[in-house]
Design a protein around this nucleic acid. Structure first.
Lengths: 217, 217
DNA sequence: TAGATTGTTAATCGATTAACAATC
DNA sequence: TAGATTGTTAATCGATTAACAATC
């Protein structure tokens, strides 16, 4: 099926894809060759209907009477998620979170390669964390343009994040992984993925305090 | 309205509450006294209907002809989210992410107090990061029981996380903030909030690769 | 009082689940 | 072939939006 023919995929489905991918990876490492939507759904705690509906948005990966080939499905979902190619990343902000991202080796396995860190603090510029160098923010635009950088991880305070979003847009960034506690206003063609840890913690707190009401999902 | 009378609140609504709270905090710091659902919805990029419906699940905070009092609404949502009291946290895993959480000062402002870190590495035990001490995992259960710990932030590898989830459940933890790339199986009364960064990055990647299909939400 | 804006019901939309004919 | 299981349509469920009477 050609990309252009694809029907609109809802974000609800996209949210589920990485989890399918994770479970398929586990099955693969256990040398499971094939799996039915029914068995897979039980493993993951969802309905078989949802599995079939979700997968069928992207193509007929299964076979009647057989199920899905684990290796094939894993690779196909990997492609759908863009994991079949390398994505270059810069981390902006060499604070604790920036350093944690830079030090985390698993991203690279999936094709996400952190090429550099940036900070404005002269104390930090020139240092390196886990073989990733810290450069001055002044060099950011040029670095993005010259190094095929697609994604910027923003681990800076709110005010700086808002300002940097503009600079990144100008520099031609394609996606922003935003760890700052604010919504970024960027042109529509730039993808923003928010990781708002304090909001995550508040949801946990809500569910703790109201754990009489058992949650649905 | 008594807690027991509350109707079931969907997780969709709960996901939005911290964002309302954040915007209200900003309005408050700008000394805005009142706001209508219409103005608020424009500010946040949602519908006025949704704002009124969401808020009304928790009580009639508004007033016809006037709107909502910002300070009052901020406080009410804070209470709903359980931010009116202190939640004690332990961070398990003194790696980069654990250290980043320990070093992040904003959580405490919201009542989330990190009391200790735990690790199994003798190199790390005894150290401290941002005035938070690292203890041996062996002391975890006792610490939780003696220090009114509600939440455990799990920043350890997958296999360790699965094992620790069992220990935490036994120790009487109420909530787990799970940073490990796995789903945890715990008794139903324990709340789990997942932060799966690699899945977040994959969603970003999907939306990059498929940015022809513009996303809905 | 008149205008503004809520709280709430009704209508719409979208996502999930169920069912089953197609087919391997 | 017979059994298993998909792909897909139809039914259901839940969430969002629209509308408006109530009321400050």
């Amino acid at each position: 099926m050609d990309v252009k023919d694809r029907k609109k995929i809802s974000q609800a489905i996209i949210k589920r894809l990485p989890r399918y991918y994770r479970y398929l990876g586990e099955l693969l490492s256990q040398d499971v060759e094939r799996i039915s939507s029914n068995d897979f759904s039980k493993l993951m705690g969802v309905t078989a209907s949802q599995v079939r509906q979700d997968l069928n948005n992207f193509g007929g990966f299964g076979q009647q009477g057989y199920g899905y080939n684990v290796k094939n499905l894993y690779e196909e979902i990997g492609k759908i998620l863009g994991l079949d190619r390398v994505h270059n990343i810069v981390v902006i902000g060499a604070g604790n979170f920036g350093k944690a991202l830079a030090g985390y080796k698993d991203f690279e396995k999936r094709g996400f390669k952190i090429k550099a860190m940036f900070d404005q603090d002269p104390e930090k510029i020139g240092k390196s964390y886990g073989d990733i160098n810290v450069y001055s923010i002044d060099e950011l635009t040029e670095f993005i343009k010259n190094n095929d950088i697609e994604i910027a991880a923003l681990t800076v305070p709110k005010a700086a994040a808002i300002q940097l979003a503009g600079i990144l847009a100008e520099a031609g960034i394609k996606g922003i992984w935003n760890f700052a506690h604010t919504d970024l206003k960027v042109p529509r063609h730039i993808v923003v993925e928010n990781v708002h840890l304090s909001e995550s913690l508040m949801r946990l707190s809500y569910n703790l305090v109201n754990s009489g009401n058992r949650m649905k999902k």
